[in-house]
């Protein structure tokens, strides 16, 4: 804090000849004009930088991918083979990887979203304040666990119980194609998805809780005064009000699940196949395949991996645009109230 010179300049200052004085403080020199301009340039620059980085990433991916895509002897979009390191006949396709990426992320959300909504509602509307604060802290802590730890834990600890679960699912629900495999079980889409679900839980829960807490008291009381039970109040006031926020939370979770690399590299079976079966050993994702394959890849192999990265980039972009569109569509109903 510097001492302001303002009070001494309130009256006419004989040392400053700044032309006719237009009443009040119009003729007073304003401190901080330069700072103002500097800050504007700084914030504009920061905004532009984001765009530059995104364009640079896209340009990098495209230029690196093109030579490999030219050399590819299979259809990049439909082939499930991944043999880019074959010097004589490099052939690779994204189908199995993209399928595994989307499938594992989708299963993860199916598991995580109901749990996240439940925890968030418990924290915002059911738990006593002290428990809510403590539990909220633990959930946030879960978000701080590095993904490699989740990967290790999933591979070395969770794979046993999931193997048992797979056997159980097959025995009782084997008529559903999802659980059709008779074994062996272990590193599977199911295991990867469960680990992913735990990883997306914190961010989804935290966002949903923040949205639920913001429900206007007036709306909650309106529902209660109509004779709603607590759950009915949540259904009539809290959930509809929070819907755009829930969608955003789910999409952010989906973004995390799609891009998750190391935990999936450690828990998926790293095979190249397209199967609806969740419990058989197998499964792969774009990001996990890049992590697994980059070390041993030759020039074409690296280009192929980068091409797959480009597709992942496109998928996450589409997911985000879709999320924005959904949120935007509901805006009239939420923004309407003063």
């Amino acid at each position: 804090m510097s001492e302001s010179p303002m009070p001494t300049k309130v009256g006419p200052d004989p040392t400053v000849h700044s032309g006719p004085t237009l009443g009040g403080g119009a003729a007073l020199p304003r401190a901080g004009r330069g700072l103002e301009r500097l800050f504007r340039w700084f914030s504009t620059g920061a905004g532009v930088l984001v765009l530059v980085v995104i364009v640079a990433i896209a340009a990098f991916l495209i230029t690196q991918a093109i030579p490999a895509l030219r050399a590819n002897q299979a259809n990049f979009f439909t082939s499930t083979k991944w043999l880019p390191n074959d010097v004589a006949h490099p052939r690779f396709g994204i189908a199995a990887l993209a399928y595994g990426t989307v499938l594992s992320a989708a299963i993860a959300l199916v598991i995580a979203v109901p749990v996240a909504l439940g925890i968030a509602l418990f924290l915002s509307h059911y738990a006593p304040r002290r428990i809510a604060t403590g539990l909220g802290f633990v959930i946030d802590l879960l978000a701080a666990v590095p993904s490699v730890i989740f990967g290790l834990w999933g591979r070395d600890y969770l794979s046993g119980p999931v193997t048992d679960l797979s056997g159980w699912l097959h025995r009782y629900l084997g008529f559903i194609p999802l659980f059709g495999s008779g074994g062996p079980y272990g590193n599977s889409i199911l295991l990867g998805s469960i680990v992913l679900a735990i990883m997306v839980l914190p961010i989804t829960t935290a966002l949903c809780r923040d949205v639920f807490v913001q429900t206007p008291k007036a709306n909650e009381e309106a529902a209660l005064a109509l004779g709603a039970t607590r759950w009915e109040m949540i259904r009539t006031a809290v959930l509809p009000y929070g819907r755009p926020g829930i969608v955003a939370a789910v999409m952010l979770g989906l973004g995390r699940a799609l891009g998750e690399t190391i935990a999936l590299a450690m828990t998926l079976g790293a095979t190249f196949g397209v199967s609806i079966d969740l419990i058989q050993v197998g499964g792969n994702s774009i990001a996990a395949n890049i992590a697994n394959g980059f070390g041993e890849a030759n020039a074409t192999g690296r280009g192929a991996l980068i091409a797959s990265g480009l597709l992942l980039f496109a998928i996450t972009l589409i997911v985000n645009v879709a999320a924005r569109a959904i949120i935007f569509r509901r805006r009239e109903f939420v923004g309407g109230q003063s």
Binding site: P216, A218, N219, E221, A222, L226, Y241, Q337
Partner: peptide
């Protein structure tokens, strides 16, 4: 029935 100080229709 109850009517509140500020109008509170369900916004959604």
């Amino acid at each position: 029935g109850m009517v509140f100080q500020r109008p509170n229709p369900f916004p959604t």
